[in-house]
Amino acid sequence: MARIGKGWMGRALAAASLRRWTAAARDAGSTDLRVLRRQRAAARKLKARLDTLLFIADSRLSLPLPGTQAFPRPQDADWAWRPELWRGPLPERGLSSVPDKATLGTDATLFHDCTRSEITLRQTRNLRAADLAAYGLRLDVFSFDGSYLSLVIDLPPEAAQGLKRTHLIRIDTVVEMEQPLEILARLNIRHGPNTEQIVRELPLHDQEIRVEFDLAYTRLNEKRADRMWLDLIFERPQMNKVTLRDLTFARRPRADL
């Protein structure tokens, strides 16, 4: 059977069915009662299926679209970005017993020094009405015998192009946790043989989880900046589930002091 809206035959059948029900509704006031009773039974069956279709369609079409780069950013931003992991589906959605330096997608790498890994990392589909990113990242940690756990996000080369000490780098994120913990954000900027590092603690108790890195307080060699990456460092992560619903970056010039 031709599907509704699929091919010319499907569209023709859908149009013919619509005309038939339109005529039945128009003539219902004068239709023979035996015919009207049959039409009512058929209409109820059709309505039940249409209600199901509308419910599923509304749910799916209200989700953030894969690939979206829509998110709030400063008006004067000269660069903004959402990593691949939060934009679209990855070929490999998850990892279990995650080893050190395991990668998920092209942007994210997990570092730890556990002798026995009881860590899982999984891309999830965002389903909440408030979500702007299509996907999220869930980190499950059970027993943890290491001294550090860090998720590294590699920024694209464009982030370092034209980078100045007058720039501010802003990150916005949406975080959910089973148990309270601290997450440190460390921005790394490589310039020649040196690397500048700026550390901020994520304000996880604020409504907006946002931090800015002011490059004015670094010794950045603007002519040699060629790479940037972000470390998200999880303090005492054992027996916890952390979901990063979104993560975005923006770069803007700082106002003159």
Rank of each mutant, 00 (worst) to 15 (best):
M1F: 09
G5M: 05
L13T: 03
T22C: 08
A24G: 03
R26M: 11
D27H: 13
G29L: 03
G29W: 08
S30P: 04
L33N: 09
L36Q: 03
R37C: 13
R38P: 02
A42Y: 04
A42F: 02
A42P: 00
R44Y: 12
R44K: 09
R49E: 11
L50I: 11
L50T: 10
T52H: 13
F55L: 15
I56G: 10
D58M: 13
L63P: 01
P64A: 07
L65A: 15
T68A: 03
R73I: 08
A77V: 01
A80E: 05
L85D: 01
R93M: 05
S97M: 10
V98I: 07
P99R: 08
G105T: 03
T106C: 09
T106E: 14
L110Y: 06
F111L: 14
R128S: 11
A130I: 12
D131V: 04
L132T: 12
A134P: 01
D140F: 03
D140W: 01
V141L: 06
F144S: 00
D145I: 09
D145E: 08
G146R: 01
S150I: 14
V152W: 11
L155I: 09
L155A: 06
E158G: 04
Q161G: 05
G162P: 02
L168G: 04
E182D: 13
I183P: 00
G192R: 08
Q197A: 15
I198S: 12
I198M: 12
L204I: 09
R210Q: 15
R219L: 14
L220P: 06
A225N: 00
A225E: 01
M228R: 06
D231S: 07
K241Q: 12
K241V: 14
R245V: 01
R251P: 00
L257R: 09
